[in-house]
Amino acid sequence: MKNPDYNPAKPHHTPDGFRNRYPHPRPDADFWQWQRERRRLKLPKPPTQDLSCIAPNLGAIHQPPALPQLTWIGHETLLLQIDGLNVLTDPVFSKRASPLPFAGPRRHQPPGLSLKQLPHIDLVLISHNHYDHLDRASVRALMRQPGGAPMFFVPLGIDRWFARNVRGTRLAGDNSNVRAFDWDDEARFGPFTAHFCAVQHWSARGLYDRNRTLWGSWALLHPHLRFWFSGDLGYSQDTRDIGARFGHFDVAAIAVGAYEPRWFMKAQHIDPAEAVQVMQDIGARQAVGIHWGTFELTDEALDQPITDLAHALKAANVPAERFLLFKHGETRVWDAAASRLVTDVTDVPKEKARPRDDSLAAQ
């Protein structure tokens, strides 16, 4: 199948899809070897720590303070609230991250916020098309939300997936609600500037569509917050490039899970030590761990990132409070004066920094 977005002037484009910006070695063995080994070793082991959701602060979520606010819903689904706008990343609310309703990775706990508990979503950022990041039922529900569909910013090729799978998709004209991005593309959305950035990963939803659609990370810049969402990534020069381009971020949501066994996962998923390096590469003042504790995808226990991240921060001489792991459903606000996310919002003014503009959903 030919790549409809193919541009021969761009090295990461190929006639039939896309490739990473920096070459990297492929694993020495294959997927089926990994599956045989994990069955033999009875992996992953069950978690020993409590990963259940906490009760969400629905009052703060539906009447957010003037400061930017971040809620971890689970896996890579985050709700960022700032300036009266609500941004959702990689929305997955289904019970399984799978094309099948009866098989595949199952949620360890329900989402920290349900679809019904969400405020009106203005903008959705999609990193790539794997089932634990692009969930058809979830995006269909968001497209039907009361008050009108959000805007979806997606990688190249996923716009056509939306057209085939999600009723209400509009790809062209002033009324479009799905916009496709190549690496280094940028767009305005209200007070935000969104930049789609290269990271090392891959895409597929079936056996014969590997790398047919693009993947990446998102830099979301606002006058009051510089935010980076990693998506999935293996460690590469890409994050150093992002740091050189943007200088710093206030808050970065960085994947810290699904990293064992390293011989197979290293090229596609960073481990906690590499996540700390990524935080330093991009100049993040505060990091939040994502892509852990929700779905059993690889060989480490769901709670292993808690221990491994703590060790990695200590080894790198980085204060533990600079790289946080939220509980499912937890909300924190950004205190710019302290350069950190805080839970105590009792002194934060309740009025929004700017009144909500529902016309943005149609941009």
Rank of each mutant, 00 (worst) to 15 (best):
F181G: 00
R205M: 15
G247N: 04
R40T: 03
A29S: 12
L297K: 06
A316K: 12
T331I: 12
F229L: 14
T169K: 01
D238L: 04
Y131M: 05
A244L: 12
A149H: 00
F152I: 09
R106S: 03
D182P: 03
R285E: 10
V87T: 06
A9E: 15
L125K: 01
W202V: 04
A60Q: 03
P56I: 02
H128W: 11
S203A: 15
S203R: 13
G243M: 13
L113S: 04
R39L: 11
L297C: 03
H133A: 13
P272M: 12
D344Q: 14
N317H: 12
A55M: 04
L325M: 13
W228S: 00
H108F: 06
A275Q: 10
K327A: 09
E296I: 03
F31D: 07
D90K: 08
L302K: 03
L360W: 12
A141Y: 00
A353W: 11
I282W: 09
H195K: 04
Q268A: 12
P23I: 12
L171R: 10
G190L: 09
P65K: 02
N177I: 00
V154E: 07
D357G: 07
K10D: 08
S127R: 05
D135Q: 04
D50T: 01
S52F: 02
F153W: 13
R332E: 06
I290G: 02
K42N: 07
P119G: 02
A284S: 13
M1L: 08
A287K: 05
I254P: 00
H133N: 11
G17S: 08
D132Q: 05
I54S: 05
A275S: 14
L67P: 00
D209T: 13
L58H: 02
L100Y: 15
T193H: 12
M1P: 06
